[in-house]
Design a protein around this nucleic acid. Sequence first.
DNA 1: ATTTTTAATGAACAGTTGTTCAATAAAAAT
DNA 2: ATTTTTATTGAACAACTGTTCATTAAAAAT
Lengths: 192, 192
Amino acid sequence: MKKDLRIIKTQESLRHALLTLLKSKPLETITIAELCRLANINRGTFYLHYRDVHGVFKHYLEVIIEDFRQSYEEPYYKTNFHIQNIKADMVKIFHHVKKYQDFYQIIFDERIPMTYYYLLFDTIRSFMKENLDDSPWMGEPNIKLEYLLSYQTNAILGILMEWHRQEYKTSIQELNQQLIAILSINNLFTRG
Amino acid sequence: MKKDLRIIKTQESLRHALLTLLKSKPLETITIAELCRLANINRGTFYLHYRDVHGVFKHYLEVIIEDFRQSYEEPYYKTNFHIQNIKADMVKIFHHVKKYQDFYQIIFDERIPMTYYYLLFDTIRSFMKENLDDSPWMGEPNIKLEYLLSYQTNAILGILMEWHRQEYKTSIQELNQQLIAILSINNLFTRG
DNA sequence: ATTTTTAATGAACAGTTGTTCAATAAAAAT
DNA sequence: ATTTTTATTGAACAACTGTTCATTAAAAAT
């Protein structure tokens, strides 16, 4: 019932080769042919496992997302103040991105397809969804959760995008302060 | 000092051919070769004007963005209530996307590179930046505008993404109501 | 109207892509 | 240990890519 050893070997070779190539050239310039040459895998075999180079990369991303999920689920002391819980959650996100900075640099690259962005989006969005249950405005009748979730999720991704553009120079502490400041400013949003 | 007529003719042929092909197949599957065949342009000539098929598409997008800019700049009666001004601005964005729905369906496709997303992002972000001057929290000392702008811009793009995922079935009025509701909910954000 | 400049063409090249198929080799099942 | 199943290989194919270069044709400048 286990997976054929050859399959594992082939896929690992390809993934390893991709990592090696990524050290010297951008993802978008890596061809299937050169990947196979380096991995000592027949090019025909490649297509038995992946459709394109992105398929190989995506596998890595799935591992990273899994790690993300685990570190996010880790319990912490939840206060009754929603903003403090938010804060604790966001710190986790920032730490995760920092941890895999090399990958996120690729994901946010303008030549890369939206797939990866959406993968990250959906992950964070599912986190948000869980948190929503403990939130104070769950009673709101005339609000579609879908829009609220996508709004808030993508807002956070906006912070990450800006972080990326500033080449990850902003510290996590600083990032956190900014987020808090933004949230309290939006508090004034409707009054101004 | 004017541009050579041949250049204009060639580029127009290619753009027109792209539009035709887009009616029957997704952007990502259109090859340079077939585009040139349809446009009656030598493939070598193509490379004198564009690097890839996306280059041709991007030209269209630039025209669309220009139209966006113009419709956004149109004056309207600004109230003293920031949220009402926001509302009027957002309606413009929604209308624009609806107007060019066929294009935005492509731009938000997961196979498409992030470039287009960023182009839209930067456009909306520049609108936001203008508006920021009249906003009540400009005095805030310890906040970096860059992060605030990216946060708010991408939040709006989150709404657009959700709209896209729901196949643009939500009406603009409904969309607007949702946005207002979200903004007032975020008002509670820090208190909960 | 003629000359000059510049764009478009066609042909050719090595390399990549995606697919098929018979032959081989390696793992799994007995 | 032998058989059965399944993955990998290598070769071949047509089509696409990105580039070069001499030739042709069409605009622009005079």
